[in-house]
Amino acid sequence: MTDRNLPIGEDELQAFVDERLDGARRAAVEAHLAAHPDLAERIGTERRQRAMLRSRLDAKFAEPVPSRLRIANLRATRRASWARGWTSAAAAVAIFVCGATAGWFANRITPASAPIAPTASVAQGAQAAYRTFVVEVAHPVEVGVQQEAHLLQWLSKRLGRKLAAPDLSPFGYRLMGGRLLPGGSGAAAQLMYDDASGRRLTIYVRAAEGTETAFRFQKESEASTFAWIDQGFGFAVTAPASREELLPIAEAVYRGFEGKS
């Protein structure tokens, strides 16, 4: 095949990464890569990274996301206004995906205007984390419930406290997974639960000074939080629920953690 003798250019390598070459040219590129291990490694990495992007965004679109972000609707937008619409739609996806994380860090560096009580600080941290991650569709949790044992072991190690996931099934909530976050001067753990209707509840734990155990209630827009401190750790339960609905859940979580440090 004469095709095999044509030089391999960067455009062709990109088409190879995108799996768009036909049989003859693909074979030529593969032969070229076999003879050039450094290049083969680079192209292999680019292929893997392309696959990672696809799988991350595929997973995202497999979730019940708001309709304005669904691919079908993005395509409709593209038909409506071909040139600008589609480019900015792609950008919007990237911004939506990455914005949540950026928002979280922006939140953390906002200086507190005055010293605040430890429970208030825990409640604020919990609410900031709730606001940031409860709206996440692509990766609301860093480690999913399928790896619950690993998740709890990991978070326990990072927190310096044995962490169990309280059973909230009596309230209709089941564990989705959890993540590690910056919290106070160390790490914080967030466990996320959801119920059949998709409502999400989080339990937030981090090291905190103080021995007080009184519940502190705080409501911010939709989300209510009960926070308390017990034996050097702050706990908070946050959900879009009324004080009356949330209190028994907070009490169950409190009992679940009590004396297990």
């Binding site: 768009r20 992007l53 965004l57 480019t87 990237a94 692509a138």
Partner: peptide, 28 residues
């Protein structure tokens, strides 16, 4: 590293292309 967070650091025109071509399968 989170690949999506990292992607966000690319210049706009490169980021859009990686999504349009690499993920959305638009032809060149």
């Amino acid at each position: 590293q989170d690949i999506l967070t990292t992607l966000d650091q690319l210049p706009e025109e490169q980021k859009s292309l990686l999504l349009l071509v690499g993920v959305e399968d638009l032809s060149y």
